[in-house]
Design a protein around this nucleic acid. Structure first.
Length: 380
DNA sequence: CCCCCCCC
């Protein structure tokens, strides 16, 4: 009760309301919020309702829109809907106490932003009192976080459910706009290809798992890398699913020099009913130059035999060849590994799509395409 | 943090 009186004094409410009436209204507010607000938060809200100019973190009465929140904004009040709830985590403070932290993504009609909740506020995530779809009055301070601008809500912040209707808009980035280093990346995309899960050994001796999916939208396609337990998500995905990837980040792959989307342990991948369309960009065969990845579409105009061989490193592999023709030319496709069996599925004139095959100058200096494990082949 | 475009 002492802290409510403290707020009463600090907010200079004596000219507006009697102390006992203020206490009563705080009690009503707590009941009204069904236990979601503690006394202190409720007192802040009542003070705000009464027009006090210094509620929450001293944010003033102005309600900010998500899109207006920038690194230097300071304290803000906003009303936003919960889009994503990340699990709460505990950590040890230097003073020996256990701190709690949790993250949410919230959105209003102007966009989405990350909230970082501390201690008592983070506990609301743990107890299940904060779930996707709820709308909250939020008061906190703006900070440049690990993955961009975020609003921190600590002891002095306010997080209180409200009936207010908020039209949430989560800005999703178009694939062609993805740049190296981007964080808090949200995508809506279509699954175009799914690779096998690979295991590898880290320097520290632990075993890692990694896999990739290729996703596309109306602006392009990109490789997505999933690490460790996130590789389990593959079992729920199939080609042509439309998905949302929330809170991923983009990094250039050292090997390919291409920017990829990374799905780490803070990233959420879920299916969506809102279908995302993608149309493959097929290159005319005559435009192919060595050293690039291409997709082509044409009809089979030649079928070679299968050849099993042993690589220099002792591993076994197979290769077969087909020729594909379109209106502009004809090209040989080397079908490696699992793709080698394609020769048994096609006849002359079968229409095929060879997606993401790598071009090079091959036998007799003729340009050929390598269909390896990053290539998808569709028999039409 | 992984894959490394491989055959005749």
């Amino acid at each position: 009760m002492d802290e409510i009186i403290e707020i009463y004094k600090k907010q200079k409410l004596s000219g507006i309301i009697r102390q006992e009436d203020f206490l009563e209204r705080v009690g009503e507010k707590v009941n009204q919020m069904g236990g979601l607000c503690d006394n202190r938060t409720a007192a802040m809200l009542v003070a705000h309702d009464l027009g006090a100019g210094d509620t929450g973190e001293g944010a003033g009465n102005e309600v900010h829109k998500v899109a207006d929140i920038a690194p230097g904004t300071g304290n803000v009040r906003l009303i936003a809907k919960v889009m994503t709830v990340f699990p709460a985590k505990e950590f040890n403070r230097n003073d020996g106490t256990i701190g709690r932290v949790a993250n949410l993504i919230v959105a209003d009609e102007t966009g989405s932003i990350r909230l970082t909740l501390w201690d008592d506020k983070a506990d609301l995530v743990k107890t299940g009192d904060i779930t996707v779809g709820q709308t909250f009055q939020i008061s906190g301070y703006v900070k440049e976080g690990y993955s961009g601008v975020e609003v921190n809500v600590g002891n002095n912040g306010v997080l209180c459910e409200t009936d207010e209707k908020v039209e949430a808009s989560v800005a999703s980035t178009k694939i062609s706009d993805i740049k190296n280093g981007m964080g808090d990346l949200n995508l809506r995309a279509r699954v175009l290809d799914i690779a096998d899960i690979r295991t590898f050994n880290r320097k520290d001796g632990s075993t890692g798992r990694v896999t990739n999916i290729t996703v596309g939208d109306d602006t392009g396609k990109i490789r997505v890398t999933l690490w460790d337990e996130k590789t389990d998500l593959l079992s729920g995905l199939k080609i042509n699913d439309s998905i949302e990837i929330i809170n991923a980040y983009a990094r250039e792959n050292n090997f390919s020099q291409q920017v990829e989307v990374q799905v780490g342990n803070r990233t959420i991948v879920k299916k969506t009913d809102k279908e995302v369309t993608y149309s493959e960009n097929f290159t005319p065969i005559s435009d192919i130059i060595p050293g690039e990845s291409y997709s082509i579409k044409g009809s089979v105009s030649g079928i070679g035999g299968r050849h099993d061989f042993t690589r220099d490193d002792g591993t076994e592999n197979s290769v077969s060849n087909i020729y594909v023709s379109d209106d502009t030319g004809r090209i040989r496709i080397a079908l490696w590994g699992e793709h080698a069996g394609l020769i048994d599925e096609v006849d002359i004139d079968t229409e095929v799509e060879i997606i993401d095959a790598f071009s090079k100058s091959g036998f007799n200096d003729e340009i050929e395409l390598s269909a390896g494990n990053r290539t998808r082949i569709v028999v039409l």
